[in-house]
Nucleic acid binder design. Structure first.
Lengths: 213, 213
DNA sequence: CGACATACATAGGGATCACTATGTAAAGTG
DNA sequence: CACTTTACATAGTGATCCCTATGTATGTCG
């Protein structure tokens, strides 16, 4: 019915989607190739034919990851008129869900980082991924500063790296203890990195009520 | 010769040190209990007698982790007279080494975070760990603001979370691509979060020369 | 429509791993 | 110095996992 090429690419897509979900949820080493194949409704034979092995699957996943993330970073920002809305969109896009896979995005981010640090081949890809994220955000910042009429007090590259760092580090803490990292705290930090005045009319962050052990 | 108690605690210490090193270097799942036992010059029998299993070893490791980190966070700060020196000490302490285990500190941080997110029992401990880190830094900030005569423009809890977030996120990027995250970029971000003026007399951050793929 | 190539399925092997049951030397105790 | 307990070592087992060799249905092409 379908051509061989379409069938093949569909299988590849299913395998990568299953691997993304399972690697994020359970981790790379805790996920068996048979589990990935089963979740994709295929067999390990197909997986080995496509990727050559478990590590090949990881590399392919990370390469796809680059394109989809750079797109996702800017996608949630369209249609948001004000600057705070855009900053907030970046944050909620990070912790709520990537729009497709729940909070798998964040888990996969750290999972892949660990492999990137431990494996030079993966590390190259991971470094390139963040270079593109920073460059994309830096470009956006320059556009924003023109659009909203504020001034960048540091090179856009620098501010981009700082904004990404704050978002990553806040998500890191938020996932362990959500109430300790309310949205206002993140937005306030982002604004301070941009050297913007604190947003007027916003109530001060709520008193911390995170449960104490 | 030695008492049984001292012998036992010494074995426990060796096992935990070996597990720390190996879990950080290779990851939890990629590290076998036999490898941990061998690195500690003991056998798996000792390991199971102490921790009941591999997961028990991880829990014990994380619990030790709490105390040692809070201590380490403030330890590198003594004897540094100026504020920039202290901020710089926090950063270099994060990326250079923890003073004992190379850069294992950072790897273990993210490794344990993933387990904390996936396992509720571990998650409780991890959340408590960061609560203590934030509280410790918040207290330090209030002392600093008095000592150095600057004013906190936001609650100390909030600023502490933001500083930690920036440090974590910067370390995250730095480990993938060190030249893309020079020290000055980190210090500038920390200062902006503290609403301090940019440091005078400091050359602007070097042009980025990170290799492009 | 027949021969070939492709895409994937099936079955199984070799290695590794977490864990357990049992043995044993040393420390503790009266 | 007999006896018990502690702290760890030894040896082995079932399960799991990554990978490979081979089989087969379906698309492809002259």
């Amino acid at each position: 019915m379908a051509t061989q090429e379409s069938r093949r690419s569909e299988t590849r897509r299913l395998l990568l989607a299953a691997a993304t979900e399972l690697f994020a949820r359970n981790g790379y080493h805790a996920t068996s190739v048979e589990a990935v194949a089963a979740a994709a409704e295929r067999t390990t034979g197909a997986l080995y034919n496509h990727f050559g092995g478990k590590s090949g699957l990881l590399v392919a996943l990370l390469e796809d990851w680059i394109a989809s993330t750079v797109a996702g970073l800017t996608a949630g920002l369209r249609g948001v008129p004000d600057l705070d809305g855009r900053l907030g969109a970046m944050w909620t896009g990070l912790i709520d869900s990537d729009g497709e896979g729940g909070d798998a995005w964040l888990l996969l981010e750290f999972e892949l980082w660990l492999h990137a640090v431990r494996d030079p081949e993966i590390g190259q890809i991971g470094a390139e991924r963040f270079r593109q994220m920073r460059a994309g955000l830096a470009g956006g910042l320059e556009d924003w500063s023109a659009e909203f009429g504020f001034e960048l007090t540091a090179p856009a590259d620098e501010v981009a790296a700082q904004l990404i760092a704050l978002l990553v580090g806040m998500a890191f803490q938020h996932r362990l203890d959500p109430v300790a990292v309310p949205t206002g705290m993140v937005l306030a930090g982002l604004r301070r990195l941009l050297d913007l005045p604190a947003r007027p009319g916003l109530p001060p962050p709520a008193v911390q009520i995170s449960a104490s052990a």
